[in-house]
Simulated assay, not measured.
Amino acid sequence: MRLGVVMGTGHGTAGATGRLVEDLVERMRREGPVEVGSVATDDLGLGPSCPACLSCMTEGEQACPSYDRAAPARTVMDEADLVLFATPVHSFHVSATMKRFVDHFAYLIHRPAYVGKPAALLSTAAGAGHDAALGYLQTAVRRWGFHTVGQLGVNGPGLAKAPYRAKVDAALDELASSLRAAATDPVEPRPTTADLIGFRVARLLVEGGREEGPVDAAYWHERGWFDADWFSDAPVPRVPNRIAAMVEKKIRKGIAEGSAKPYRG
């Protein structure tokens, strides 16, 4: 089994996130060999932020100024049977370098490359914020094609207390077993209503940007997605698909008539 790890911290095993990843990998290895490829987002050198130049969208990912620096992360994700995204919670969200990593792979929202590949999510925090951090990661990597098969949020200081540590150990045991099963026998889940809406919105973006982004259009055309209801052959539930179609129709009308409204909360 090949496990890819994208870790949103440069502390390695000296930090709570790194130690938790090691604990999880150790448990997975009890059931058989695990080859681990890992990258720390701190080490990628992606700069203070994504420049938002959109070159990755319009000209292809190779046009990104940070293409070579991001290459180790691409390799980890490409070669893995399952990818584990792990981050500490910083101010109720993912770490800054994990966010920077996600931003630099924004083209995957338009050209998802990991359809059918399982992912797992892990976070550590001194307090709260797991819901926001893990929720954000789940949404982001789903747009890249991954489907999340397990997640775990752990309170770092709480690990010093035996009762809490025992609960975390039990959760790690369960997670390790489920991740190995998902990696060795991957089964893509049926897309949800949100998934199907996301597919249609992505298609709208690609269709509307054919002139500015022919790379996206070529990618979709090669895969037959313009004439599909989903990215793969996974069964598409009828009712959710009808709901997604209605949402798409409403969005198309809003774009055509200019009647879309700004978000006001």
Score class of each variant (00 low, 15 high):
Arg2Gln: 15
Val5Pro: 13
Val5Lys: 11
Thr9Arg: 07
His11Arg: 15
Gly12Cys: 05
Gly12Tyr: 02
Thr13Cys: 00
Ala14Cys: 00
Ala16Tyr: 08
Thr17Ile: 05
Leu20Arg: 02
Asp23Phe: 08
Glu26Thr: 14
Arg29Pro: 08
Arg29Glu: 15
Arg30Lys: 15
Glu31Gly: 09
Pro33Cys: 05
Ser38Leu: 04
Val39Ala: 03
Val39Tyr: 00
Val39Cys: 03
Asp42His: 12
Leu44Tyr: 02
Pro48Ala: 15
Cys50Val: 01
Ala52Lys: 10
Cys53Gln: 07
Cys56Phe: 06
Thr58Cys: 14
Thr58Phe: 13
Gln62Asn: 01
Cys64Gln: 01
Arg69Pro: 02
Ala70Trp: 03
Ala71Ser: 14
Ala73Asp: 00
Thr75Ile: 10
Met77Pro: 01
Asp78Trp: 06
Glu79His: 02
Ala80Asp: 06
Ala80Glu: 00
Leu82Gln: 12
Phe85Glu: 04
Pro88Met: 00
Ser91Trp: 09
Val94Pro: 02
Ala96His: 04
Met98Ala: 00
Phe101Gln: 01
His104Arg: 13
Tyr107His: 15
Leu108Lys: 02
Leu108Met: 05
Ile109Gln: 10
Ile109Val: 05
His110Ala: 14
His110Asn: 11
Ala113Gln: 07
Tyr114Leu: 03
Val115Gly: 05
Ala120Cys: 08
Ala120Ile: 11
Ser123Gln: 08
Ala126His: 13
Ala126Asp: 13
Gly127Ser: 14
His130Ile: 04
Asp131Val: 14
Leu134Ala: 14
Leu134Ser: 11
Leu134Tyr: 11
Arg142Trp: 01
Arg142Cys: 00
Arg143Gly: 15
Arg143Tyr: 04
Arg143Pro: 01
Trp144Tyr: 10
His147Ser: 08
Val149Gln: 14
Gly150Glu: 07
Gly153Glu: 13
Val154Met: 10
Asn155Pro: 00
Gly156Met: 12
Ala160His: 11
Pro163Cys: 08
Tyr164Pro: 05
Tyr164His: 11
Val168Ser: 12
Val168Asp: 06
Asp169Asn: 07
Ala170Val: 07
Ala171Pro: 02
Leu172Thr: 04
Ser177Thr: 15
Leu179Ala: 03
Leu179Asn: 05
Ala182Ser: 10
Ala183Trp: 06
Asp185Asn: 15
Val187Pro: 00
Val187Ile: 06
Glu188Gln: 14
Pro191Ser: 05
Pro191Thr: 03
Ala194Asp: 14
Asp195Lys: 08
Leu196Asn: 11
Arg200Trp: 04
Arg200Cys: 08
Arg203Asp: 02
Glu207Asp: 09
Gly208Asp: 14
Gly213Gln: 12
Pro214Gln: 05
Pro214Tyr: 03
His221Glu: 15
Glu222Trp: 13
Arg223Pro: 04
Gly224His: 05
Gly224Gln: 07
Trp225Leu: 11
Asp227His: 13
Asp227Ala: 15
Asp227Pro: 11
Asp229Met: 07
Asp229Val: 13
Phe231Arg: 07
Ser232Met: 12
Asp233Gly: 11
Asp233Cys: 03
Asp233Phe: 02
Asp233Ala: 15
Ala234Gln: 09
Pro240Phe: 06
Asn241Pro: 07
Ile243Glu: 06
Ala244Glu: 06
Val247Trp: 09
Glu248Gly: 01
Glu257Gln: 09
Glu257Trp: 03
Ser259Met: 02
Ala260Gln: 04
Pro262Tyr: 00
Pro262His: 04
Gly265Tyr: 09
